[in-house]
């Protein structure tokens, strides 16, 4: 039964959240709370914060990485079921997946050649 397989997941999630919540609650009873503006400033090695924190959010390499991840993650999605039934579908299935991987390799090689994998320009 599917339900019995995934019920524990639900229980586990509930359990973890419960435990975490309880811990937080207990902690909130125990800990002091004494905020003031200097304490609430973002940590910058003791200096006054300079510039926007968000400035780093749009560094292109991260996006390229994200895009690559999407591509390969999706490939994994196809590979798993294929790997399970490979013995049943035999040569044809193997060839088909081989073509698929080959196409991805082309993309990968392209990204490599293009320098998308170089972190520092």
């Amino acid at each position: 039964m599917t339900a019995m397989e995934f019920l524990p997941v639900l229980v586990m999630v509930a359990g973890v959240v419960l435990v975490a919540g309880a811990t937080l609650f207990v902690s909130s009873l125990l800990r002091p709370s004494n905020p003031y503006p200097e304490k609430n400033m973002p940590y910058e090695c003791g200096m006054d914060a300079a510039g926007e924190a968000a400035a780093g959010r749009f560094r292109v390499p991260f996006f390229i990485l994200a895009i690559l991840l999407v591509v390969f993650d999706v490939e994994t999605m196809f590979l798993f079921p294929w790997a399970v039934v490979l013995k049943d579908i035999g040569l044809v299935g193997y060839v088909e997946m081989f073509v698929f991987i080959l196409l991805l390799l082309v993309g990968f090689a392209y990204a490599w050649l293009k320098g998308a994998l170089e972190w520092e320009q």
Binding site: S28, R31, P37
Partner: peptide
């Protein structure tokens, strides 16, 4: 850790 002040930055 349990009794330490929980501090949230202003922004």
């Amino acid at each position: 850790l349990l009794t330490k002040e929980d501090h949230i930055p202003a922004e």
